[in-house]
């Protein structure tokens, strides 16, 4: 009888001991991506009585899309500056000393409930020894106008779900597509959000630096971004997913669509960019043929992601 008990126990131990671990799915999703929700101070600039605090997700400015919050506080009264005209201009200087900008909100919008000025910037390159970024912020308080500038560091975006691309369309305009969301996608239907911007060619010659008319960008209005997600990995044979929705513009000035990822890993978002008349400005259709063993073909407009 005792021996039988012993056998039962041994069997139990055998079975429960060397089981292969089940995958922790939540951990699996966050190996390649981190989702940041909190806005934290990147840097602050003091100008006279005012201190300007620049906030972004994870206290960092990255290449690609960045939502930016500005808190402007009077250090004397400890009262924040409310509902004034605040402008924001990022300028990049390259190795040759050429100056240019990137898609950004020039006139910041005051958010009364949260008490900050809301803007964004789509940084097109990372800071390094030859490339430097400078922010120019102007605001007016009473009769006094404040002009500050501050050099900033643009970090490499390691989350590929926030990748961006810049291109020239058939209409010879410069366009920018930057992914905004999801930061951490799942094997699921994901709401895909992107910003689409264009460079406004200056019509007048440059005034005193920094002349905002030379560095103007605007949100592309009511175009369409056709979406075709694929897995580029050769063994996946150009695998695609069902029930995706093309990106169209919504009231928040961003483009919204739906992307389905059928498994984790590398994905390519193939795009065709069309204007409001349905004319293709950039992008090519990708063959739907299943080609195992061959690296997936891509549209000539695409963004790679990984999760």
């Amino acid at each position: 009888m005792k021996r039988l008990h012993f056998v039962v126990i041994v069997i139990f131990v055998l079975v429960t001991s060397c089981t292969l671990e089940k995958t922790d799915y939540e951990a699996e999703l966050s190996t390649e991506t981190t989702e940041y929700i909190e806005f934290e101070e990147v840097t602050s600039i003091t100008s006279g009585d005012y201190i300007i605090s620049i906030e972004a997700l994870n206290a960092t400015l990255y290449k690609g899309y960045n939502e930016i919050h500005l808190n402007i506080i009077n250090t004397q009264t400890n009262v924040s500056l409310q509902d004034k005209d605040v402008t924001f201009l990022p300028i990049v200087t390259d190795a040759n000393g050429n100056k240019s900008s990137c898609p950004h909100a020039y006139n910041l919008e005051y958010n009364a409930t949260e008490g900050y000025y809301l803007g964004y910037a789509v940084f097109t390159s990372e800071s390094d020894t030859t490339i430097s970024w400078q922010l120019y912020i102007d605001f007016q308080e009473g009769s006094q106008s404040y002009k500050v500038d501050q050099s900033i560091t643009v970090e490499k975006q390691t989350n590929m779900n926030l990748n961006m691309t810049a291109f020239t369309g058939n209409d010879n305009e410069q366009y920018f597509i930057a992914l905004v969301s999801p930061q951490s996608p799942g094997v699921a239907e994901n709401d895909l959000v992107a910003g689409i911007y264009k460079y406004n060619q200056p019509t007048s010659s440059e005034g005193t630096f920094p002349d905002p008319s030379q560095y103007a960008y605007s949100v592309v209005q009511d175009y369409t971004l056709l979406l075709d997600p694929r897995m580029p990995e050769a063994s996946m044979g150009n695998h695609s997913s069902p029930n995706n929705q093309d990106l169209t513009m919504e009231n928040d000035g961003l483009y919204h669509g739906v992307v389905n990822y059928t498994m984790t890993g590398n994905w390519t978002l193939n795009f065709i960019f069309q204007n409001e008349k349905g004319e293709t400005l950039k992008g090519t259709e990708v063959s739907t043929e299943f080609t195992p063993g061959i690296e997936g073909a891509k549209s000539d407009l695409y963004i790679d992601i990984l999760f």
Partner: peptide, 20 residues
């Protein structure tokens, strides 16, 4: 009932692909 599927890319240094 749980069943997992993990595919390994040909370049094993690349990220694996996972689904249930």
């Amino acid at each position: 009932s749980i069943a997992e599927m993990r595919m390994y890319p040909q370049d094993r240094s690349e990220t694996t692909m996972f689904a249930y």
